[in-house]
């Protein structure tokens, strides 16, 4: 990484976050432009509601603005934190309760992929989609129920009429396939 905070022609998340910590609105604008589609799409998939997904998006980036100075890039990926936090809030909202406030300097998320450029994100979307389409139906169903509907394994087992251990095994196998996009 070059000292000026860019990799190739992309300004890194860490540099943007440092600028946001100094209340640089353009840096927040750039970060929002970088991740709004990913965060919104995932939130909308979970909530099935555009307005609620937009609220999640707005609150999340407002929190980034407020607390950017406390983020330590060494502890985890900002993109990972955004996705995990947005999902947690969306699931909490789906269950009709207010989500806990996840601080930027806690709950590190290690995302071992470059997702800072549009090209990288599009590539990953295609790869993940290919993997998901290639999964056996029961594995894909278990994974989607867990991630997008916030269903615990017991609820998935009840829904599908399968034994609990079978459901767990299917989710583990699905995750193994999914993690191959990391290589």
């Amino acid at each position: 990484m070059s000292p000026q905070g860019t990799v190739g022609d992309v300004t890194t998340d860490g540099w943007l976050l440092a600028r946001i910590g100094k209340k640089d609105e353009e840096a927040l604008s750039a970060l929002y432009d970088r991740y709004n589609r990913l965060v919104f799409s995932m939130a909308k998939r979970i909530l099935g509601d555009t307005g609620k997904a937009e609220e999640i998006l707005d609150d999340l980036f407002y929190q980034v603005w407020q607390t950017a100075g406390r983020f330590d890039p060494a502890k985890g990926s900002l993109a990972g934190w955004l996705l995990v936090t947005a999902r947690n809030r969306a699931i909490s909202r789906l269950r009709g309760r207010s989500g806990a406030s996840e601080e930027l300097d806690e709950n590190g998320v290690t995302l071992r992929l470059d997702v800072e450029s549009r090209a990288a994100q599009n590539s990953l979307v295609n790869k993940v989609r290919t993997v998901m389409e290639g999964l056996p139906d029961e594995q894909r169903t278990a994974l989607e129920c867990a991630y997008f509907e916030g269903m615990p394994d017991t609820a998935i087992a009840e829904k599908t009429g399968q034994p609990l251990e079978t459901v767990k095994t299917r989710m583990r196998s699905a995750m193994e396939s999914l993690k191959k996009v990391l290589t």
């Binding site: 589609r37 990972g80 995990v84 290690t110 994100q121 979307v125 993940v128 989609r129 991630y147 999914l178």
Partner: peptide, 13 residues
């Protein structure tokens, strides 16, 4: 968490 976050990319963009 990072691995699970890959599922976000499965949502329709």
């Amino acid at each position: 968490h990072g691995s699970a976050a890959l599922m976000a990319f499965a949502a329709k963009q």
